[in-house]
């Protein structure tokens, strides 16, 4: 899907990497260790394409944290980690001796906060760099199967929904974790996002 030109993809990747940098700083501050977070790649797909491209080959469940935001464009942002990765991250962050099975109660709250930090950092980077103002909902957390997620994206409205898929690399206490940040947008919102990226580029070029 060539909604963005190459240079626009680069610009948007840069915006999200600024967000990732902010989130990494916040996470380091909480756990008192260096955290590295980056967004190495980004692509736009139609919502029906999400299943083969992001969710295949993983039979396990995903931990997801999502926030809906609105402003010049509206989207649902969903952070996806495989459930096992998510538990490892939380355990690293809590620095606890607890076994993975024992984490149930705190896990949800801590994962919600982790998602909130990454999502807020991405949104604040967009707000600053595009000079816009966004409002968002509180994060909600759930454990979902790949099929649940695919259904959610496809059902959520009409055929002309798009997903912006960001690959996320998180390095935390020697653990290297990969996840995805997915923005679900309508075609109208996507065109507005494209316009903001173009505006941003025309300001700096």
């Amino acid at each position: 899907m060539n909604v963005f030109s190459d240079i626009e993809i680069d610009a948007l990747t840069e915006v999200f990497n600024v967000g990732a940098g902010r989130a990494a700083l916040t996470l380091s501050e909480i756990i008192g260790e260096e955290v590295m977070l980056s967004v190495p790649s980004l692509k736009v797909l139609s919502s029906a394409e999400i299943f083969p491209s992001v969710l295949t080959g993983k039979d396990g469940k995903f931990a997801t944290v999502s926030q809906v935001f609105s402003g010049p464009f509206t989207a649902e942002a969903v952070l996806l980690f495989t459930e096992n990765y998510a538990l490892e991250i939380v355990r690293d962050m809590m620095g606890s001796q607890m076994s993975i099975d024992d984490l149930a109660e705190f896990e949800q709250e801590a994962m919600s906060e982790l998602g909130n930090i990454i999502l807020n950092a991405s949104l604040s980077a967009m707000a600053d760099m595009f000079d816009i103002s966004l409002n968002s909902s509180l994060p909600s957390y759930s454990i979902s199967s790949p099929q649940d997620i695919a259904d959610r994206f496809v059902d959520n409205g009409s055929d002309d929904n798009y997903v912006l898929v960001l690959h996320i690399d998180l390095v935390l206490e020697k653990h290297h974790t990969e996840g995805h940040l997915i923005f679900l947008l309508s075609s109208t919102s996507l065109s507005k996002l494209v316009a903001h990226v173009q505006q941003y580029l025309s300001n700096i070029l």
Binding site: T26, I30, F106, E107, N116, L123, S124, A127, S136
Partner: peptide, 25 residues
């Protein structure tokens, strides 16, 4: 704490709600 101030700044400057979980704070 820095975490509390960061959350406050997120809300006031960016309109993004923030959570501080008891597990991490």
């Amino acid at each position: 704490t820095p975490g509390f101030l960061r959350g406050l700044n997120n809300v006031i400057s960016y309109g993004s709600p923030s959570l501080l979980s008891s597990a991490l704070h």
